[in-house]
């Protein structure tokens, strides 16, 4: 099966006065039709920039310097800004993290949905409004006709996120990029939004690129997981394999850092193991493996060069020298 989105050796860099930030450094990703791929990693490791690169919306001074992004067999890096604006919103939808700041405070929510429909389809205002009301019902917003004329600040966080989902889905895109869609919401609302996303994904037959740092979201939603560290994909596998048999030490440490409930009392209580250190300064990455300074199993050989990724049995992609031994 051909991939809907195929990213090869993508490099996005920020050329600043004091040096180059390699935010995305040679990322390979594939998303198939109807699949949910989750991109996980700590803050500042290049997840969001990967998502924005796909939309060609990397904020300046950021630039895509190498690689290719094939979407529906077209390399979108070669498309003009005008062709790109026909893909944005229509073919690829975007859901942002904080639903309050992602909505324009001075425009009614209905207008913010219907303007997207009017941009991409030759429909009049009335028809656009009807489609908007349908859409608002599909994302399970209550009292749609009165909500249509409300302003974002009058809505609760969960409702606002539903509005953003409606905007992303308004032109039935084939791919939706959701950048931490539930991070700004409280837990009970999170699960509602996630199950809504799951249902809509089925109904609209979309593929989903889910950017998150929350492994519970990954477990709930993803078919496959790509773990990202310092601009590179360090491990990629099926969701089940990631949780049951993580190979890369970074993935292992991320999973160890999740608080677990254990009431049985039988096991020795396993406390949370925090991952020491922080994502390295992206302007000044360590030589060799970028994870080396924080890695528990690294030795001198890891300092020499960056480990080439290899496919382990079961189709897992891992880039670590020690992984074969582990």
């Amino acid at each position: 099966m051909d991939a809907l989105l195929k990213i090869q050796l993508l490099k996005t860099q920020f050329h600043k006065k004091h040096g180059i930030v390699k935010a995305v450094d040679g990322v390979d990703l594939k998303i198939h039709q109807g699949e949910t791929l989750s991109l996980v990693g700590e803050s500042g490791c290049g997840k969001s920039i990967t998502g924005l690169s796909i939309m060609k919306l990397v904020p300046p001074p950021g630039r895509i310097v190498a690689g290719s992004i094939e979407f529906k067999k077209r390399n979108i890096l070669n498309l003009s800004e005008k062709q790109m604006s026909k893909i944005r919103g229509k073919e690829i939808g975007l859901i942002l993290q904080d639903p309050l700041s992602a909505l324009n405070p001075v425009i009614t929510v209905g207008e913010q949905i219907s303007e997207v429909i009017r941009t991409h389809f030759p429909v009049n205002r009335k028809e656009a409004k009807n489609r908007t009301l349908d859409l608002m019902e599909k994302v399970q917003l209550p009292n749609v006709s009165s909500l249509y004329d409300s302003y974002p600040h009058q809505l609760s966080g969960g409702l606002r996120q539903r509005v953003l989902i409606a905007i992303a889905l308004s032109c039935s895109p084939s791919l939706v990029i959701a950048d931490e869609p539930t991070t700004a919401l409280d837990v009970s609302i999170q699960s509602q939004i996630l199950s809504l996303l799951k249902n809509l994904k089925k109904e609209f037959q979309i593929s989903l690129l889910l950017i998150t740092h929350d492994f519970s979201v990954v477990a709930e939603m993803a078919d496959r997981v790509a773990v990202m560290y310092a601009g590179k994909i360090v491990e990629q596998a099926n969701t089940f394999d990631i949780f049951t048999n993580p190979i890369h030490p970074y993935t292992k440490s991320l999973l160890d850092a999740i608080p677990k409930l254990d009431f049985s009392g039988k096991k020795k209580t396993k406390t949370i193991v925090p991952l020491k250190g922080a994502v390295p300064d992206m302007m000044n990455l360590p030589d060799g493996c970028t994870f080396y300074p924080r890695c528990s199993i690294a030795d001198e050989s890891c300092q020499k060069s960056y480990p080439k990724g290899f496919l382990s049995d079961g189709g897992k992609f891992v880039s670590c020298f020690k992984a074969k031994l582990a």
């Binding site: 939309m55 919306l57 604006s85 026909k86 893909i87 944005r88 919103g89 229509k90 939808g93 975007l94 942002l96 993290q97 904080d98 700041s101 992602a102 909505l103 324009n104 405070p105 001075v106 425009i107 303007e115 997207v116 941009t119 991409h120 953003l164 905007i167 992303a168 308004s170």
Partner: peptide, 24 residues
């Protein structure tokens, strides 16, 4: 972010300036 959202939805630049920036 709401300008990023507007760009991500493929709105025309004239609309982003006229409808999203100006009222603000």
């Amino acid at each position: 972010p709401f300008i990023l959202k507007a760009k991500g939805a493929g709105l025309k630049t004239s609309r982003i300036i006229g409808r999203h920036l100006m009222p603000n």
